[in-house]
Each structure stands twice: as structure tokens, then as C-alpha cells.
């Protein structure tokens, strides 16, 4: 394993161990609901489902249709806040 990959694995491990990943996830979820991201995506889902037909929709379809849009729709302020927290976490644990 390369050094880079090793490092990433270590960071991920730490994120999960400390419970920080769960906290970040919850924060992101709350923020996204708050700013209407969820509703926007749900509306998009409706379009996709109508197009494909109610019976023929699969999770894979939804994921491939929704994920790019979901990524694009995340507001900058939310991104910024999350990044801030992640950076703080990294700084704290690389300083040890």
C-alpha cells in the first residue's frame, strides 16, 4: 500500500473511531434539509420516476440520476461549513 493510501485509511479510521463521521453526517443532513436540497432532489426523483415508470425504477437508476445532481445542488455555505469542520479535525489529529 502506498503511503498516501495508508494515510487516508488512517484518517478514515480515526474519523469513524472518534464518532466524528457520524456527527458530520448528521450535521450535513440537517443543513441539507434546512436549505431545501432534499425537497429539490425529491422533486427531481419524481421526474425521473415518472419518466421510467413506477414499476421499472431500480435503486441503481435513481443513484445514477440523482447523485450528480445532488452533488451540484449542495450550497456553498454548507460545503464551507463542513470543510471547516473536517479541516479542524485533521489539524487537531495531525498535530498530535
Amino acid at each position: 500500500m502506498s503511503k498516501e493510501a495508508q494515510m487516508r485509511a488512517a484518517i478514515n479510521q480515526k474519523l469513524i473511531e472518534m464518532g466524528e463521521r457520524e456527527r458530520l453526517k448528521e450535521l450535513l443532513r440537517a443543513k441539507l434539509v434546512e436549505c431545501g436540497w432534499r425537497d429539490q432532489l425529491k422533486a427531481h426523483c419524481k421526474d425521473v420516476i415518472r419518466e421510467k415508470g413506477l414499476e421499472h425504477v431500480t435503486v441503481e437508476d435513481l443513484v445514477t440520476e440523482i447523485t450528480p445532481k445532488g452533488r451540484a445542488l449542495v450550497p456553498d455555505s454548507v460545503k464551507k461549513e463542513l470543510l471547516q469542520r473536517i479541516r479542524a479535525f485533521l489539524a487537531q489529529h495531525s498535530a498530535l
Binding site: 458530520l24 435503486v59 470543510l83
Partner: peptide, 23 residues
């Protein structure tokens, strides 16, 4: 770069959650 990756992972998680829910 790592911070960005973590963020996009989180966002993807959220998307996946929504997809499961809708499905």
C-alpha cells in the same frame, strides 16, 4: 484534497440515503 474527498463522500452518503428512501 483529503478534506474535499471526505466531504464528497459524505454528500454521496446523503444522496444514497435519499435514493434508498425514495425507492
Amino acid at each position: 484534497g483529503i478534506a474535499q474527498d471526505i466531504l464528497s463522500e459524505l454528500v454521496e452518503d446523503a444522496c444514497l440515503g435519499l435514493c434508498f428512501e425514495v425507492h
